[in-house]
Amino acid sequence: MSRRSLLEIRNLRVRVNGQEILKGITLAVYPGEVHSIMGPNGSGKSTLAQVLAGREVYEIVEGEVLYDGEDLLLMPPEERARRGIFLAFQYPVEIPGVSNLHFLKAAVNTIRKQRGLPELDAMEFLALAREKAKLVELDENLLQRAVNDGFSGGEKKRNEIFQMTVLEPRLAILDETDSGLDIDALRVVAQGINALRHPDRAIVLITHYQRLLNYVAPDVVHVLYDGRIVKSGGKELALELEEKGYGWIAEEIIGSPRS
């Protein structure tokens, strides 16, 4: 492919509390693509997502990450967000007393500023928020409530997707946004993701289930196992994993001489 990758991870090794969690990840994501990352609990999926978003508790031991050709690891988290990286959190955080709308308006406007666009005033923002809330079928009451405060598990996930559709990121990383959703919510989340799809944008879906992939067809599926990407393939890989679990991959790895 001659086009430049949007995200390029080279041999990334990450430690937390002295323990190595990511043990050499290499991955390239091109504009327009949807990648899915699957893997057993504790394999390092969220760690990878959080490192890409700039969480500072993780120690980078080795490797580099380029975002749109620039060194991502040098940028503070807000800079990454302003340049279009969005992380839908596996566990969205509650911020008591801060209205969801107020929070998102501040986010939209810092990002617009970065893009050289004029800030949205209260009316313009409200119109945008209402439109997107409708798209992801988010109860309008949740807009007025404090960020994630007392939201149900499913409401929190839906709120993440709502934020994503409002912020229109170039690289969206969704960490198990499909977990704990009922069937309708799953469809809606998929709708939000599909609405974001665009030749200039890319999406990384971290998931345990291939059911989301029924709605959002990934270009590539990766298996993250014990801090390494041990297998990559097409959509069928997800089906195979769902059927057989991860055991066979473990055997494959142990069976094959890896360096």
Binding site: A53, G54, R55, E56, V57, P76, P77, E78, R80, A81, R82, F86, L87, F89, P92, V93, E94, I95, F103, L104, A106, A107, T110, I111, Q114, Q163, L167
Partner: peptide, 13 residues
Amino acid sequence: EEQLFYCRQRGLS
């Protein structure tokens, strides 16, 4: 730290 990071991930300083 989680709250701070969440806000910064959304672009806030």
